[in-house]
Design a protein around this nucleic acid. Structure first.
Ligand code: ZN
Length: 228
DNA sequence: CGGCTTTGACCGGCGC
DNA sequence: GCGCCGGTCAAAGCCG
């Protein structure tokens, strides 16, 4: 799965596709933004297997967010200076997902559904994914248009948290951006929901080589003219 | 004028 | 019930 499906905040890096295949790490962009060290999926942290920026594999997880304690638990577990691995261990939330460790070909997808609601069978699966990105700027063009609808100060953190909603018609995908409480040089970008439309920067074209329909992101070629 | 920010009000869940 | 807390609303303002 391509991580840009979720609207990767690092998408402003025009070379993020190259990084997956080649070892080309343009210094111009790495000075600006380094790729996430790990991902947080529904408040579950997945550490990259080999901590290699150029060979990252990504894991996806759909999970119904029925728990609200996780944030407080995380706060407790990260009271001391923790590395990414510590967070995972302390939370102990990947018990069923341990198979992903050290096996970069295994992609574990967990699907939980809230069943037996008093109301309808409104199985409202809202995947939540969080990127932790080292960046000085938190305004990152990920290809979608976001409308800010709130700002709140985070407890125990000097940094506020911004709330965005996708401007797409009938699309309720939400996004929150805040600076890491521990290390303000990191930005936590959390996406929630699935777009009911394509990214306005997504295009399809016919490959001149194979004449197959190829999926592409325009920021590889048109990112410089991105609006915002 | 239309779409977006800003910002305090508001609201629901939860713990006491 | 009350107050905290995280999240959302919406009126007013800003900007092209
Ligand atoms: Zn959308």
């Amino acid at each position: 799965m391509d991580i840009s499906y979720f609207g990767n905040p690092n998408a402003s890096n025009p070379y993020h596709h190259y990084n997956k295949n080649n070892n080309i790490a343009p210094s111009s962009s790495s000075d600006f933004i380094n790729f996430s060290d790990y991902l947080v999926l529904d408040d579950v942290v997945f550490v990259d297997n080999n901590n290699n920026i150029n060979n990252q594999e990504y894991y996806s997880s759909w999970s119904q967010s029925s728990e609200t304690e996780q944030s407080s638990d995380k706060a407790a577990s990260s009271s001391t200076t923790t590395t990414a691995a510590d967070v995972v261990i302390n939370q102990g939330l990947i018990s069923d997902e341990t198979s992903i460790n050290n096996n970069n070909t295994t992609t574990t997808t967990t699907i939980k559904r809230k069943t037996g609601g008093i109301k309808e069978n409104t199985v409202e699966v809202s995947p939540r994914i969080t990127f932790r990105t080292r960046s000085q700027l938190e305004i990152m063009d990920d290809g979608y248009k976001w409308r800010k609808y709130g700002k709140k100060s985070v407890k125990n953190s000097p940094n506020p948290r911004n709330y965005y909603k996708c401007s797409g018609e009938r699309c309720g995908v939400k996004k929150r951006v805040e600076r890491d409480r521990e290390d303000s040089s990191y930005v936590l970008t959390t996406y929630e929901g699935v777009h009911n439309h394509e990214s306005p920067c997504t295009s399809y074209y016919t490959s001149p080589v194979s004449s197959n329909l190829v999926y592409s992101d325009q920021w590889t070629s048109a990112n410089s003219s991105s609006s915002n």
